[in-house]
Each structure stands twice: as structure tokens, then as C-alpha cells.
Amino acid sequence: MKLTICHLYPDLLDLYGDRGNILALAARCRWRGIEPEIQEVSLGESLDFTGMDILFLGGGSDREQGILVQDLMRREKDLRQAIENGLVVLGICGGYQMLGNYYQMAGGEKIPGLGILDLWTIAGTKRLIGNVVAELHPTALKIDSESNLARDNSELKLRTLVGFENHSGKTYLGKGVSPLGKVSVGHGNNDQDGTEGVRYRNVFGTYLHGPLLPKNPHLTDILLELALIRRGFDSCLTELDDYLETLAHKTMVNKLLKQA
């Protein structure tokens, strides 16, 4: 068994320890005897969405983000098709924003995004920085209902996401997509409606760094599971000893909820 994980633009989108997300995906494959193949694809290099199982888009500084939206635009059709075919995608911060319709600058100018997810981002005046706890949306981590593995969050040991946000863009969700969760601590998508992140088909977008995946093993495993199901493997993932992951997750959640 093998899963191909593509880290897109690792040299541009690697702010805030996002590399840790790839480390988490790879380690949790290896520990289960699944061979992880990490593809690092840089600006201008060839990219084949059909050959990959999980696509990771991290966050970058504003300048670097501008460079690569142009590059991604050329591959927009292929990516859209792959997503409609169930490609598992995790977009964080800048990687999340660019999947949407546009990013509106402070002066009103709109930089077009890939337009694959029904959401848009508007530049804010203050930076939204700090720890976040989000209560998972009831169906946020649900596995496709066509599969006999359909289940909801009640089966999960952890029902929160924990991480660190640092963004000035405010993201608003359209009708075609649902949020990943509801913030209990922190600002979330836009500091107004209490939503955090997005889920559309097998695409997950969020503002949470931390990095996100090591300390949210339930989310990591859903990404792996979705990718396996898409490849036709039907079995559930073997349980891992998640003592440290759960401890790190719960320690932070409890501390933050207490402070709030």
C-alpha cells in the first residue's frame, strides 16, 4: 500500500512550521505499514494531479503567494477536475484562501483565486493572531456517505481542532460549502460569524497552523482514510498509540477554554 502526498511549493509555502503537517501524514502512514511518497513540487515544475493522493497547500508571505497563484492558474482545470474526483486536499492560510473566488485588497482591487471553492477573502485592517480552539462541525470529518464507512464525529475521541492562527484576510463562506468548525477561542474565518475553515468534498481549508496535523491526529487520519478509500481500499486504519498527540491536544484545549 502506498500513498502519494504532494507538498506544493514547499519552498514558497512553508511558513509557521507547516512542514510538520507533511511529517505527520508521512509518519502516520509509515507506522501503519503504508508507504508514503512525498512529492515536493516547486514553481514551474510539472504537476500531475491524477497521480497523487493528498495535496498540501501551505501558507506563505503575501509576496510569495502572489507569485504562485499565477503559476497555479495554469493548472486550474486539472486541479478542479481532480477535486471533483475526490482528491484529498488540505489548504492552510494562504493555501486555503487561494482555493476561493478572490482576495480583495485593501484598495478594493480583487486578485482572482482558483475559484474551486465557493468562498472569498477580504483584506482586514488588523492581524488576527493567537491560539484557536474550534468545535468540529457535526459532519466536518464525515466520510463520503456512499461508502459503508459513513460515520459522524460522535465516533471520534477528539471533537475539537486546536492550532494557532495568524492572518489578516477575512474569509467568508458561500452556500456551496460548509465550515470545518465553530470557534470557541480565537477569531476563525473572519472574526464575525464564528466559523472556522471549510469542507467541500474531500477538500479541507483552515487558518490553523500549529502545525495543524500533528496535534489533531483525528483530522490527519481522516485525510489518510479518505485517500485510501478513493484508491479503493476499504479497510479502516489501524489504531495507533496516540497518547502524546491526545495529551498535547487536550492540554492546550483545556488551558485555552479555562482562560476564555
Binding site: R19, G20, H209, P211, P214
Partner: peptide, 9 residues
Amino acid sequence: GRDISWLWD
């Protein structure tokens, strides 16, 4: 630094 994600770098 409030953000400890640098540990992963």
C-alpha cells in the same frame, strides 16, 4: 513568542 509552530521548522 506565542506561536510555537517554529519547533517544527
